[in-house]
């Protein structure tokens, strides 16, 4: 896998293939652009969480692939265009992460006493070692559910933040709300079943 961006000529050819709906072009674009975009962000923001680099690069490329016609070759090269989007997406992600930094959320999800959503489970005296149970249960959740649970424990209220984490950007706001609610309900039911041993 190359971390070097294709030449301007190759990049433009790939861009043209995308505009023509060449069915193999999106894959080629991912292989050609994604590692290089990630490397760009790693170089520009070396001390950041590596997951943020990868997520922002993915977000940027997704934005481009959804609307490739927005890139105007007469105004500059594709590399600069993609890097600008990636930088913007990275800074947005970083801003959101900072907003919730006051909530100490260890990987185990285990001892976040600030989660109102799970307060009933965590506070229940009859559930011995409930926090460790919760951490073990959380780790058995699918990756997407873990992302949602993390947001719930951070007391995230914004539907669009959940929708982004769940890759529901293509849905209307109303559909996003419905899907996000379903996901939260599903996660809570699974956790409650696990804690209650039902």
């Amino acid at each position: 896998m190359s971390f070097r961006f294709p030449s301007p000529k190759s990049a433009l050819e790939l861009h043209q293939r995308l505009l023509q709906n060449d069915v193999l072009a999106p894959q080629a674009a991912c292989l050609a652009f994604l590692p290089a975009l990630t490397a760009y962000l790693q170089h520009k923001f070396p001390s950041a969480d590596p997951h943020l680099h990868a997520t922002a690069a993915t977000d940027a490329l997704m934005d481009y692939l959804r609307q490739p016609h927005r890139f105007d070759p007469s105004r500059g090269n594709l590399y600069s265009y993609l890097c600008l989007i990636a930088q913007r997406d990275f800074q947005n992600l970083q801003r959101n992460a900072r907003r919730h930094r006051h909530v100490e959320l260890p990987e185990e999800f285990g001892n976040s006493s600030q989660s109102t959503v799970l307060d009933a489970i965590l506070a229940a005296e009859q559930y011995e070692q409930s926090q460790r149970q919760l951490a073990q249960l959380a780790q058995r959740l699918p990756q997407l559910d873990q992302r949602v649970l993390r947001l719930m424990l951070q007391k995230e209220r914004s539907t669009s933040v959940y929708a982004r984490a769940m890759h529901l950007d293509h849905l209307s706001h109303h559909q996003q709300q419905r899907q996000v609610k379903r996901a939260k309900d599903r996660i809570l039911k699974r956790l409650l079943r696990g804690v209650l041993h039902v």
């Binding site: 292989l31 990868a54 993915t58 997704m62 890759h167």
Partner: peptide, 12 residues
């Protein structure tokens, strides 16, 4: 470290 291609394939 997250592999961006894995992330993309997941989103796909």
């Amino acid at each position: 470290m997250s592999d961006p291609l894995d992330l993309m394939a997941d989103r796909a």
